[in-house]
Nucleic acid binder design. Structure first.
Length: 573
DNA sequence: GCCGTTTTCGGCCCGACTGTTTTCAGTCG
């Protein structure tokens, strides 16, 4: 069983949890957490890096000791330190720390005094009112524990960005009805356009006498008020989504936006720079002694650190600060750069609108081109098309093109990659198309070797242009295919095949890390919507967000090109 | 446990809110 980066990260995180419960040196604990994050975010497998003879202690936050531990974990799947800790402290306790309000100290007390290890035992102790008498605990804490256990039963911790976006929209509209609010902005991972968000952070500035906190907790969708203060309150909506509101003074708005946009790791890195310069950086501004020297805008906060403004999507401490210091920050792709959609479906297969409707909708978006990419015959559930029906659709497109002067309609198809790596329709049909998107929809559970070979073989076919939703994952629903992404990208770069960034909020496939990786390996991408309806054409913003998180610039994305230029990129034969 | 233009020791990001206290520890972001 090969040990991948997530396995290593998990061992380190577990060590950190158990050390924390034990009450170990907090900085040692952080070292383990930092290392877990570093390893978890690598684009190459640590095991491959070691094999290549790379010195892992060159990675940030990994010293000699942890580099050695990584090696041990790669070889054995675990580490003696973790095994020893497990003898001392039951590992289930780390699970209890996931409950809100339960940290290492409380968990330790509950274990020592009551022998509580699992959620079940915790519930029993709370229901028998044994917790309230412990030192540092009380009746309220006991009730909160029961509430938390209840809330976690459903076990959905993070929300897809699109779902959060919907909830937030109406909440914001409600808040904006309060006329004394001067400005209101969303920060947090939502602003960074992360594919899933754990909670929503809202920042407001107000005029004097504004009862913003009262209005906040009075929202009809609020299920529970977690906390309410002068400057900060937290609620949980009926959907389970947590929303935090912070009131900040105008002069500190930029500093607060910076602080609450995060990521935590990015902030820590920036704050370290502040410390070096003898400044103090917090949510109220940049301070030299007691003097606030910046804070009104994010730009001026960064400027004090001799840094340029960072787009929120870049703020993950994945090398953006070093890149900025060298003047190498990317000029990120924007929605306006997109000239057309290369993957939309129609009623001919599983879309919900006619060819005419989809083309018209794309035209109304101001696109220069739109590609009709319906399913091929293998996908019977979607009424996939055989050669005959495809040719008929091409004829229809020709007729419609005669009437539509404003937009170029591209003939495409989402062709299935069969189990043996061949394509679902013959080359002699595929060659009549402008290009193809080729995707895996069946036999999702092949071994890593077979699955990788399958996709690579498909790329041998000169009529394959774009690899559709490369990993095949569905967020929260389906794991990604077991693919050697590095090999896939190497081959794609060599064979001039493009990778799709599928914008559907359930897919967002490629993910952010793979987007960045594609760029590093010289693979170009296409941001598409995979639209099955007219409204789906608007999903492009999610794909663009993902691409921005992956540092992509207009030049990395093929559908920023005019059709005239793009056309040449599709000729592989 | 990591790290170094204050470099091999002694630091390590910082503030709000809660529930428990009666001045603060724990937790969270």
């Amino acid at each position: 069983m090969p040990v991948n980066n997530n396995d290593i990260a998990e061992v380190f995180n577990k060590i950190a949890d158990l050390l924390e419960i034990k009450g170990d040196n907090p900085f040692r604990i952080r070292a383990y957490r930092d290392a877990a994050r570093t390893i978890g975010g690598l684009s190459k497998d640590a095991s491959d890096l070691t094999e290549e003879g790379k010195d892992l202690s060159e990675l940030p936050g990994i010293g000699k000791d942890l580099a050695g531990k990584v090696k041990t974990i790669i070889q054995t799947g675990t580490h003696p330190l973790l095994e020893d800790l497990k003898q001392e402290i039951p590992e289930e306790l780390s699970g209890l720390m996931k409950l809100q309000g339960m940290g290492p100290k409380k968990v330790a007390v509950l274990y020592k005094k009551l022998g509580v290890k699992t959620a079940e035992e915790l519930r029993k102790a709370a229901e028998e009112q044994k917790i309230r008498d412990l030192e540092g605990f009380g009746e309220t804490t006991e009730e909160n524990i029961i509430d938390e256990l209840e809330r976690h039963k459903g076990e959905q911790k993070r929300f897809k960005l699109s779902v959060a976006e919907q909830r937030v929209k109406s909440f914001l509209k409600y808040m904006k009805e309060e006329k004394k609010i001067k400005s209101i902005e969303i920060a947090g991972s939502f602003r960074r356009r992360k594919e899933t968000v754990g909670d929503i952070d809202i920042l407001v500035t107000c005029k004097r006498g504004c009862q913003v906190m009262d209005r906040f907790i009075d929202y009809e969708d609020v299920e529970k008020v977690i906390s309410k203060g002068e400057t900060r309150s937290s609620v949980i909506l009926k959907s389970g989504l947590q929303v935090d509101l912070r009131k900040v003074p105008q002069v500190a708005f930029g500093a607060a936006m910076h602080y609450f946009t995060g990521s935590k790791e990015h902030n820590i890195a920036v704050r370290k720079i502040a410390v070096k310069k003898n400044y103090k950086l917090n949510e109220y501004g940049v301070f030299r002694g007691d003097d606030r020297i910046a804070g009104k805008t994010e730009k001026e906060v960064y400027a004090k650190m001799d840094l340029p403004y960072f787009e929120p999507e870049l703020r993950e401490n994945r090398g953006e600060i070093k890149a900025a210091q060298k003047g190498n920050l990317p000029e990120l792709i924007t929605l306006e750069d997109i000239r057309g959609d290369l993957h939309v479906h129609t009623k001919a297969t599983d879309g919900h609108y006619s060819l005419e409707d989809m083309v018209k909708a794309a035209e109304n978006k101001g696109y220069e081109y739109v590609a009709v990419s319906d399913h091929s015959q293998k996908v019977t559930v979607a009424n996939g098309m055989d050669a005959k029906r495809l040719r008929k659709q091409m004829e229809k497109i020709d007729q419609l093109q005669d009437k539509s002067k404003k937009i170029k309609i591209l003939k495409s198809m989402e062709v299935d990659i069969l189990e043996d790596g061949s394509l679902d329709l013959a080359d002699e049909v595929l060659k009549e198309l402008d290009f193809t998107v080729c995707s895996v929809h069946y036999n999702l559970n092949l071994s890593r070797k077979k699955q990788t070979e399958r996709v690579i073989k498909a790329m041998d076919n000169p009529f394959m242009n774009i690899l559709g939703h490369p990993s095949g994952r569905l967020i929260h629903e389906r794991k990604p295919l077991d693919l050697d992404m590095e090999k896939i990208m190497e081959t794609a770069a060599e064979k001039k095949v493009f990778l799709e960034i599928n914008s559907h909020p359930d897919r967002l496939d490629l993910n952010d890390i793979h987007c960045k990786w594609a760029k590093e390996m010289g693979v170009k991408t296409a941001i598409t919507t995979d639209a099955h309806s007219i409204d789906d054409l608007d999903l492009m913003r999610f794909g663009v967000g993902q691409a921005r998180r992956g540092w992509l610039e207009p030049g990395d994305i093929i559908n920023t090109l005019s059709w005239k230029k793009l056309k040449k990129h599709f000729k592989r034969h």
